[in-house]
Simulated scan of single mutants.
Amino acid sequence: MRIVNLENDNRKFIKSVDNFHVLEYVQDASVSPMNAIDEYFMSKMNVRRRQVVIDIGKDHSAVIQAGSMHYSHG
């Protein structure tokens, strides 16, 4: 992948399949006071936020649909 500034101390790529890469947040820095308790206990249970990064170029493509992605508790 050509993007070099996505990984830092707080987020790392944990898995890649072809042009799809999973970026996992070690700690969520965007916690609001309204959901701080939930986020605290999620971190204690090792539940982390993840994003899929898609590398699109002349050799790779992807079809994206509205509503096809969701957040689930694991």
Rank of each mutant, 00 (worst) to 15 (best):
S61E: 00
M45Y: 07
V17K: 15
E24D: 11
K44V: 07
K15Q: 08
D9C: 05
N46S: 11
D28M: 00
H21P: 07
I54S: 10
V53E: 06
F41Y: 15
F13Q: 07
M42H: 08
I37V: 12
N46C: 04
K58Q: 11
E39G: 03
I14D: 01
Q51E: 11
K58G: 11
S30V: 00
N19D: 04
N46W: 09
A36Y: 09
I37D: 14
N8V: 08
H60S: 07
H21F: 10
D28T: 06
K58Y: 02
I54H: 01
G57E: 10
N8K: 01
I37M: 13
R48Y: 02
S32F: 05
N8S: 15
E7G: 10
A62T: 14
V31Y: 08
L23M: 13
D18W: 03
S32Y: 09
K58D: 04
F41Q: 11
Y25E: 14
D59Y: 08
M34W: 11
F20S: 12
R50M: 03
H60W: 02
Y40P: 00
R11I: 03
F41C: 01
Y25M: 04
K58A: 06
Q51C: 06
N46V: 04
R48T: 12
N10E: 10
N8G: 03
N19C: 13
K15L: 13
R49N: 05
S16T: 12
S61A: 02
V52K: 00
Q27K: 15
G57Q: 03
R48E: 09
S32A: 02
D59G: 03
I14S: 09
V17A: 09
E24C: 12
D28H: 03
V31S: 01
I14K: 04
Y25S: 03
A66V: 04
A29G: 05
V53Y: 10
D18R: 12
Y25D: 03
I37E: 13
K15H: 11
S32K: 03
I37G: 02
M34T: 13
R49M: 14
S43E: 15
D59V: 01
D28Y: 14
I54R: 08
